[in-house]
């Protein structure tokens, strides 16, 4: 009997090892362990054995059964693994083929720079304000201490649509609006960005361009001095142009500020060594700035004896050209899709 069981075990092991798929294994399992299997028959026949043989053989049958079961389980595991790997093999793809391209748009470089400037100043507590592009002579010039006939108006030949209305030549127009609008005379810290227009068009000037204007007004005894203006612009320039940039304040003249300065920065291109871009001076003129002229304060509702302020402005187009290495200003306004679509990703911080 023992030999017979031994044989069953061996045969079973061999049959199991030959099985190639799960269905066959299932069939074999029924054959080996099912009700009609040899093993079941032996178990059923245990009663006919001598009483002292019974437990021994019974236990041996169970051992054989356990062994077969474990063999089947092992085989099942192996076959499942094999089936899975075959399936996976079949599903193999060329992972070097291109991924599905999802069309990605792009942000115009001017607006990229505008957003960066806005974020910088908002982080310093400035409000971003907006003003009309179709301005009145009053806000564009007169309230900024530029009466009719003022020679400085020559610097800004303008697009008038009537004797009163014109396309703003400078975002400074928003200064007057902000001051007048602030009836509580609370401190002002604002910037304004946007389109400006002047009657000139050549390789380096577009009749439409973009500016940012900043204005800080507060009570005189608080810190609104040239030194504060300098510090503020240092932050601005270092963020927008580069940490290594140095600033040079050059006394200048704008009717709406007194004193007035033009602010030069270390030449973007040569780093100050001197090159054709900076006319060998090592400096690039970047901003106009100054302390708000007392007449401007007065005309816009602030008592110059009590209040002081500083203001600054710069062209955004050139900053954008510098930042992205754009070689010709005309690219900014031609809107060639091959140009636009280059500005389609996050820039380095």
């Amino acid at each position: 009997m023992k030999e017979k069981l031994e044989k069953i075990k061996e045969n079973a092991k061999e049959s199991i090892s030959k099985i190639q798929n799960l269905q066959e294994l299932q069939d074999l399992k029924v054959k080996l362990l099912g009700k009609k299997s040899e093993l079941s028959t032996i178990l059923k026949g245990l009663g006919s054995l001598a009483a002292e043989e019974r437990p021994k053989i019974g236990s041996f049958v169970n051992d054989v059964r356990n062994e077969i079961e474990s063999n089947i389980n092992e085989a099942e595991k192996r076959l499942k693994e094999k089936a899975l790997s075959q399936k996976l093999e079949k599903e193999k793809i060329d992972i070097t083929m291109p991924g599905t391209k999802i069309k990605r748009g792009s942000k115009h470089p001017i607006n990229r720079v505008i957003e960066e400037i806005q974020d910088l100043f908002v982080s310093m507590g400035y409000d971003v304000v907006d003003g009309p592009e179709l301005e009145t002579d009053e806000f564009c010039f007169e309230r900024l201490n530029l009466p009719d006939g003022h020679p400085a108006r020559d610097m800004q030949d303008s697009f008038y649509i009537t004797s009163e209305y014109l396309l703003r030549t400078q975002t400074s127009a928003v200064q007057a609006r902000t001051m007048l609008g602030n009836t509580e005379k609370s401190p002002i810290r604002m910037i304004c960005t946007g389109k400006t227009y002047r009657r000139e068009d050549d390789a380096t000037h577009s009749h439409q361009f973009n500016q940012v204007e900043g204005l800080v007004v507060d009570r005189k005894e608080l810190n609104v001095s040239l030194a504060d203006l300098k510090g503020t612009l240092e932050v601005f320039v270092k963020k927008m142009v580069g940490e290594k940039s140095e600033l040079r304040f050059r006394p200048s003249y704008f009717p709406f500020t007194e004193p007035s300065y033009e602010v030069d920065v270390t030449c973007f291109k040569c780093g100050g060594k001197g090159c054709p871009l900076c006319k060998k001076t090592g400096w690039i003129e970047l901003l106009g700035a100054g302390m708000v002229h007392p007449n401007v304060l007065k005309m816009n509702g602030y008592d110059p004896e009590k209040y002081a302020g500083f203001a600054f402005g710069t062209g955004i187009d050139r900053l954008a050209m510098f930042k992205y290495g754009i070689t010709d200003m005309r690219y900014l306004y031609t809107n060639d899709v091959r140009f636009l679509s280059q500005f389609d990703r996050k820039d380095e911080e």
Binding site: D127, R189, N223, L226, R248, F249
Partner: peptide
């Protein structure tokens, strides 16, 4: 300008904190 703007050291205005709006 005669004293020299380069001799004026920049600083940041000391103002009450507020959130800038945009």
């Amino acid at each position: 300008r005669i004293y020299g703007v380069d001799n004026i050291k920049g600083k940041l205005p000391v103002v009450p904190m507020k959130i800038g709006s945009v």
